[in-house]
Amino acid sequence: MEEAQEPHIESLGHDDENEAITESSAFVKGEPPEEDSSPPKVDSEVEILHEKVTKQIIKEGHGEKPSKYSTCFLHYRAWTESTQHKFEDTWNEQRPIELVIGKEKKEMTGLAIGVASMKAGERALLRVSWELGYGKEGSFSFPNVPPMADLLYEVELIGFDETKEGKARGDMTVEERIGAADRRKMDGNALFKEEKLEEAMRQYEMAIAYMGDDFMFQLFGKYRDMALAVKNPCHLNMAACLIKLNRYEEAIGQCSTVLTEEENNVKALFRRGKAKAALGQTDAAREDFLKAKKYAPEDKAIAKELRLLAEHDKALYQKQKEIYKGIFGPRPEAKPKTTNWLILIWQWFLSVFYSLVKLFKEKRQKSD
């Protein structure tokens, strides 16, 4: 694998490769939509899912649809239909949200109806009437959602897990939840080894979704350490995939998430440095590499990246030197002065003449 010489690189697909997956699941490759402040324009047929919910497919999915109590992982953007104001965008968080069909919040009833009709990998535009959204009062969390506001959702169903023996994710113990995330991580590692980067990232995203902020906030001591031992490698392996896909800004975000928990994580510093260097942020990249070197002074991969940055800086200096040389031109050379013998003879004659005049005056003064 390309990054085998990186410092403390997560063993991708190396440990417990043969462990069976105990939950049925679905996932699919995908990519984030282009950033846009307005809802997408869609020409596909309008499908009526409910008298208050319609759907237009933007991108087809595949496989089965989630059943009741399936835990779905999705990204979405949301607008108020009347004002076209975007009030939420989960893609900006770089992690999917978790929605359990049949156990969703009241304001997400319409969204859940739409998601239940989708296949893994499908992206669609949903129109949800206010009755199945934020209702008569509007949203307290999103002040720009007024009372009785119809909503538009651009939704992508990344994947879903069917319930395990009738147990919803919210009913899992901490150990079960961390274990499920770890299996997702290992699935992602196996896909990474096959260079199926998009599919691997989907598995890492779903693993991370098992350990959202609300869940992590409740953990202390050994349980938090156990969760981070799964969660942080998923972020770092996501960064490895994103670097290979030239999605450097997203890679930086994944590494920075890890560094908020472990400020001295060598792998996070190294990969963030690589992403910054690829974006031309050489000073910031050098800062990350130097900090990584502080904790792994003998690491050859870090030394190589620092050497590449030094060579880049040298080449840039030489290029700038040539540019300035072309602007101002070469410094003019001093011309040797030619000797004018006629002037020298004339100057000698004048000096002799003035000397004789001076001598004559002195003699005359003595005689007087």
Rank of each mutant, 00 (worst) to 15 (best):
A124N: 05
S141L: 13
V128Y: 02
M108T: 09
G121W: 00
A116S: 12
V115S: 01
F140E: 15
R127M: 12
G133C: 09
G121D: 06
S139N: 10
V115E: 00
M108F: 13
F140C: 11
A124F: 04
K136W: 10
R123Q: 13
L132T: 02
K136I: 02
G135S: 02
G135A: 07
A112H: 04
R127S: 14
R123K: 12
K106P: 05
R123T: 14
G138F: 03
Y134M: 07
A120C: 07
V128I: 10
A116T: 07
M108N: 13
L126Y: 01
F140L: 14
A112S: 12
M108A: 14
E131V: 12
K105A: 15
V115R: 00
L125V: 10
G110Q: 01
L125I: 10
E122A: 08
F142M: 11
R123E: 11
K119S: 10
K136M: 09
S139A: 10
L132W: 00
M118P: 00
G114C: 07
A120E: 04
E122K: 05
S117Y: 05
K103H: 13
M118Y: 06
G110S: 11
K105T: 11
V128K: 06
R127I: 02
V115C: 04
L132E: 04
K119W: 07
K103D: 14
G114A: 04
E131M: 06
E107C: 13
T109E: 15
A124C: 12
T109F: 08
S129V: 06
S129D: 12
I113Y: 05
G121R: 05
A124G: 03
K136F: 08
E104C: 10
F140I: 15
E104V: 06
T109H: 13
M108I: 08
